[in-house]
Structures are given as C-alpha cells and as structure tokens.
C-alpha cells in the first residue's frame, strides 16, 4: 500500500508541507487544516501524518472509510456522518478534525508535500499489504 514515509531527523520544521497541504485542500494557510503536521517534542521535530494503517476502517459506523486501489485509506465524505470516532480512535493521532468542517480529513499520499520538502524528510513509499490493520468481513464473521 502506498503511503507518505517520513524521517523525523531530516525535518528542519520549515512547515512548507503544512502550507501546501492546507492551501491545496482548504484554500488557506492554516496548519490546523493540514493533513501533515510538524510538532516538536523535547526540542526535536516530530512529523505526524497518516501511515495508511487502516485501523480506522473498522471503527466507522457507516463504512465511509475504505482502501482504494493503491492501498490508500480514504474517507467518502458523502456517506460520512461526522461522528469523529475515527479521530478519537486513531492511535497515531493522525486523523484530523477542524470545527469548520463536519467531516474529518486525512492524508491521502497525494505527494504534493514531498515535492516542496527541502530535505527529503517526507517521500512516497510502499508498504506491504499484510501490514493493513483492518479485518476483512469474512474473517470477522467466520468463527
């Protein structure tokens, strides 16, 4: 599955990624509307962005979250009922929510941010499909 890989140690916290993400999708430069967020912990940069693990897929009550052909986890905003359980349950804290919008949003590995990253700290990569955390329905209901 395709995802945005990261190397925190290369990050210089220039925030170019946050700017391009929020500007592209929400037409405003606001880190709170960016799918990728650069935090700092004990003086060190921390890149927080969805790794397409898929644990949110089984949480959604309306099955609005699915994996597309490239393996990217996507929210169908038409179906989404805005409960934000995916936000609360994301163990990586990478499912985003902003009060201006009634649906959550997340990184879809579109590659725009890696193109503006000056140090190559973020880049598109592939993970093995076996690392997906959601369970197929046949497996859940087959005892």
């Amino acid at each position: 599955m395709r995802y945005l890989a990261k190397e925190d140690s290369k990050c210089i916290q220039c925030k170019a990624c946050e700017e391009i993400c929020s500007t592209t999708y929400f037409k405003v430069n606001d880190r709170n509307k960016s799918c990728i967020q650069i935090n700092e912990k004990d003086g060190m940069p921390e890149i927080n962005v969805c790794d397409q693990c898929g644990e949110c897929i089984d949480i959604c009550p309306v099955m609005a979250i699915t994996r597309d052909k490239k393996g990217i986890v996507r929210i169908n905003k038409k179906i989404c009922v805005g409960c934000f359980m995916c936000v609360g349950f994301c163990s990586k804290l990478s499912m985003r929510q902003h009060d201006d919008h009634i649906e959550p949003f997340k990184c879809i590995a579109c590659d725009m941010c890696s193109k503006v990253c000056p140090t190559g700290a973020i880049y598109i990569s592939e993970r093995d499909d076996s690392e997906a955390l959601e369970m197929p329905l046949e497996k859940i209901f087959n005892k």
Partner: peptide, 14 residues
Amino acid sequence: ITQGVQDGCWYGCS
C-alpha cells in the same frame, strides 16, 4: 459474541 465490529446503536457511540 462477534468481536471487532463497530456495534453502536446510533452513530457516534464509541
């Protein structure tokens, strides 16, 4: 009892 299914009786019940 089936495990691992989102079993709320209204949306948003975590």
